[in-house]
Nucleic acid binder design. Structure first.
Lengths: 260, 260
DNA sequence: CACTATTTGTTCGTATGTATG
DNA sequence: TCATACATACGAACAAATAGT
């Protein structure tokens, strides 16, 4: 659906928008399809950069010499295919690149982002000691009520927030984890220093829902756009759970990729 | 936590309802915890079926003889634990079971549903011949503009819609696919009859977005709740793409499970 | 289309009980 | 004993979403 990750180089554009569109009326191809096609090639060709605003409906109406409904039908098509994003009261925008999050036994946030030539960053929001509720207890294979440390972490790419993750650890197994995470926001490093050099993702459950107000603020995202939620467990070499996490991704900026 | 002396309690007599709630005021357990506990056992005990509406906040307020805030605090707790779902303007509902959709190279909708002791069903909504746009062309490794058949299919579980899938096939490779799908809504069967007894899922991209009005109607879902979107390619034994599909799941009724 | 009723969401203000030092 | 902070509980008003007329 969405054209992925690699930034389209600002290639020498075909031509400025000046060229008269010249729609073919009554030739068997609906006007809105022609308009959608024209805009699509302008986006694909790079003359419209991701994130930039498209002309208003009124301007497109004038440019193509059609009714506003016709322009809107074309925009609907483009939006449904993920090429543009239409926001009531603001305008239409060329969809930004969506980052891939490849889901595998050993995928790590930072590595996967760097592989896409982007700059990953992590920031710990909160570290707290509580007790395991039923969900966390089940994931970590602890008894409910056992002490756990939960660390909430914001993941950013090129300075833009893309994910809020809550990570749970057993206090009995990792008494010092809170301090280590407070120093460096990397879960991988902290576990490595605690004698778990390698861990792997066991199972991941993926759902989607609307963000809470806090999530929307943290992710710098409109409250009307959903978050992708993953719930997963990481286990050590012996298969014992070391970390449970629930991550919430800004759905418009990240897509999960599963290779089989 | 004793009753405030200024206000005479609204009800002298405790229980008009079947089971007397009898909250213990001032016994060291917060009222909202007692209310949450009562509702939890009614849900767990099965006297409140999944999907049914809970009493309104006003009714619970009357039943337990507390302030609306106190009831709301209890509901927050239950919602955060996933036992109920609260919808502004509509009410609160006992959370339905969420179906798992295990994502693997060979997962098939019907099989996976039946394994959870549910009754899968498929209904073809539309079969149409068009040409491949850039997305589909890339997935099926065709040239853009090549003829393709797209079949839109509604997947139901126990009579409730859970997924709308669009499936694309190359017309050149499978000239008869439209007719076969029209007879039986199963993609697996149709491909089998066309000489592809086995196929496997290569890669799946997962995102989330708000549903279009049509999707909301088809999925019998509020327009304010998101859909999970998967985009995937199935290949035959030789690794050649045979089908591209984009599926939209009702996020509240289905979760994707990835095992590593 | 506008209007109304119902229901949940949010934000004020007030008061009391409990734990801590 | 006092001061402070926090959790609990109640009251009122308005905002926002939904559903029906």
């Amino acid at each position: 659906m969405t054209k992925p990750s690699t930034k389209p180089g600002p290639q020498a554009g075909p031509g400025p928008l000046a060229s008269p569109p010249a729609l073919a009326r009554g030739q068997g191809v609906a006007l809105w399809r022609q308009i959608a096609g024209t805009l699509e090639s302008e986006i694909a060709g790079g003359s419209l950069e991701p994130g930039t605003r498209l002309p208003t409906e009124a301007e497109l109406t004038a440019r193509f010499g059609v009714n506003r409904h016709t322009v809107r039908r074309a925009m609907e098509e483009l939006e449904s295919r993920g090429l543009v994003r239409v926001e009531q009261g603001r305008g239409s925008f060329v969809a930004e690149d969506v980052l891939d999050y490849p889901l595998g036994p050993r995928t790590r946030f930072s590595e996967t982002i760097r592989r896409q030539n982007r700059e990953p960053q992590g920031r710990i929001l909160r570290i707290e000691e509580t007790v395991a509720d039923s969900t966390i207890a089940e994931l970590l294979k602890l008894r409910r009520g056992k002490p756990v440390v939960v660390a909430e972490r914001l993941g950013l790419v090129d300075g833009r927030p893309v994910v809020v993750g809550a990570h749970w650890f057993s206090v009995e197994r990792f008494p010092r984890i809170a301090a280590l995470l407070a120093e460096d926001a990397s879960v991988t490093k902290a576990l490595s220093q605690l004698g778990v050099p390698e861990y792997r993702r066991l199972v991941t459950r993926i759902t989607a829902r609307m963000p809470t107000p806090e999530e929307a603020v943290l992710l710098e995202q409109a409250r009307s756009r959903p978050v992708l939620v993953t719930e997963s467990v990481n286990v050590d070499g012996a298969g014992a759970p070391v970390e449970a996490s629930i991550a919430r991704y800004a759905a418009g900026r990240m897509q999960i990729v599963v290779e089989s």
